[in-house]
Design a protein around this nucleic acid. Structure first.
Lengths: 338, 338
DNA sequence: CCGCATAGGTTTTACGTATAACGTCGTCCG
DNA sequence: CGGACGACGTTATACGTAAAACCTATGCGG
């Protein structure tokens, strides 16, 4: 404590109530049945209330050897997706007496050799989302129990993984677009070194490559509306037959594609079908509303936390990817001209 | 530690290096100059590396009496605004050896008598954003150093406050719209019990009420695109002369207003001017791009952290609201018909 | 050659908590 | 009527770290 009077300790409460520190700990820890009389217990509680006592968590954590706190590492908070992940994780955590501390990966936050140098909280475990491989090995250094979200099961160094069924999502998208009659595709890919985006690219190429008479062009852009717009604009302005459908790795990229289409005078979905992936609020804000793949962020967070709890208790985490669902809206239609 | 071998302690390192625990603490704490020889220091560091030693933060925090960790309480993460606040706060914090733990206010996370029961981290201080008054008194119960963001300076129970100059933002919006010739206004207000939104309503009424021949209708909606759409739609469908400009408390509300306008066949900005507040990514995703008030979220977070550091060091926090800036885009124009 | 500084450590202590181990009454059963 | 037991506590201890206080050789100036 920096200034003035220090915070009251359990010993202060004990003195005020005329009992021993152990009695205070018993009463406040709700372990006093048959050990302390009701009247004494009430006197202790009263004294604690009077002094405004709050237990020192550092001391408690040290004594107990655990903190009942886990860290949720997310790449960024620039979409509400990870808010959902947090909400789900925190819900399950709360049911088990755990707390969740959120740690957005630092971008320009300053040099941290260890990515958790600035998350000083004492932790029992970590849930990390969409980590790059090098960051993963760093994080494995802390031998804390670890669950990886959206990460390559093969390359996760033995950590438990929980994944969305992105492969199936891409399948649904391609089935939808191929069914509408599209043959020439542009893949607007997120310029992010993350396994989940590699899966998108790989699966898309496989699905479309399977069909004769199709073409697939790929262009990369950082996940920002403006970057997506310029990338799309230059790709669409290229000579040769224009793609009739753009598959975007992300709703935000899709919003950029919308802007590119507008600037080129292309109408959606008449001249150009566009799909996203996430189903953010953004998807229904733009016109026409975006056909996209809905990811259940909260369920994702819940499953992640459940897996971590399993690891902490020495159990085997539940298997199985989380299903995703194509939501068809107004941004996709059959291609107009052959 | 739950399973298997317990983590190595500084004593284990000491034993491995053949020195005392104190020496380890000295070396690893970088306080060994003139106390330990370079060769011994290196031996200690080597042993620590070998064992994968990481200090027990609970023990350190207990010993030191502080945690160099502060809590940032935000109402929700459904927009990227608070991501910016975090980024700014974390940047300043890192410069001073502090960490920031993010705590999105619980919605359905479970019953927490104390809003911080689930944020179990041991803290040195709290930065709380846009809190309702009742939550504030609860939080003041923990006598931790506290900085309030976007909160009534008069009613903040002596806590330091840092505010955006929303009053000026509303002034800029009304000047802009009145200058364009608008006289009939609709205020699409956020249905949130927060001081900053009261300020918006109050200032708007004052600014517009000052001008003869004006009218101001207010309609409330939760901050969601769909709620905003329905609220706006019913308001615009009412009989009587239609408003020519909609002032929204928030960009997301504005996106809802766009959708309402589209469904009513009103063109933006020809038939209807719309303004937002925040300047989220959303603002440039919709068509036409939204005229809105840009809030510098990162600066907001920086100033909040600086204020908290000042409080922690017993200094007086810097005074003065954070300037905001009207960004004029395509959603506002002079009204068409008189 | 004494005293004293200095390098290079070690021993000890305290932080606040939870809990195991230990008392001390009175009561009640055999 | 002895002793076992329950009710109601207390005393003592350990968690892992940081740092103050202490120790011991060696070198060096006077």
């Amino acid at each position: 404590m920096a200034h003035g009077s220090t915070r009251p300790t359990s010993r202060d409460v004990a003195q005020a109530a005329g009992v021993s520190q152990a009695a205070v700990s018993l009463v406040l820890g709700d372990k006093w049945r048959g050990r302390v009389s009701e009247t004494t217990a009430e006197r202790v509680r009263e004294a604690a209330r009077e002094l405004g006592y709050r237990p020192n968590l550092a001391a408690r954590n040290l004594r107990l050897g655990h903190t009942r706190t886990v860290l949720l590492v997310v790449p960024a908070l620039t979409t509400e997706f990870f808010a959902g992940v947090y909400t789900g994780a925190a819900r399950i955590a709360a049911q088990h007496g755990f707390g969740v501390v959120l740690y957005p990966s630092p971008e320009g936050i300053g040099p941290a050799r260890n990515p958790f140098a600035s998350a000083q909280a004492a932790l029992d475990g970590i849930i990390a989302s969409s980590m790059a491989a090098d960051a993963l090995t760093a994080i494995r250094g802390d031998q804390l129990p670890l669950v990886m979200l959206d990460s390559d099961p093969a390359g996760s160094l033995g950590a438990a993984t929980v994944n969305l069924d992105i492969t199936d999502g891409i399948r649904q998208v391609t089935d939808h677009l191929l069914g509408l009659g599209h043959r020439r595709f542009l893949h607007l890919a997120a310029d992010v070194a993350s396994w989940t985006f590699e899966v998108r690219a790989h699966e898309l190429a496989a699905r479309i490559g399977d069909v004769p008479g199709t073409s697939l062009l790929t262009v990369r852009a950082p996940i920002s509306i403006e970057d997506a717009r310029t990338a799309t604009e230059t790709a669409l302005a290229a000579k040769g037959p224009r793609p009739t459908a753009i598959v975007c790795d992300d709703d935000k990229l899709a919003a950029g594609a919308y802007k590119a289409a507008r600037r080129l005078g292309l109408r959606i979905p008449d001249d150009l079908s566009i799909t996203g992936l996430d189903d953010l609020a953004l998807a229904t804000a733009i016109d026409p509303e975006l056909t996209t793949v809905r990811l259940d962020a909260e369920l994702f967070g819940e499953r992640g936390m459940q897996a971590l709890l399993a690891v902490l208790e020495g159990r085997e985490p539940e298997e199985g990817d989380i299903p995703v669902e194509l939501v068809v809206r107004g941004s996709t239609a059959p291609p107009s001209a052959p």
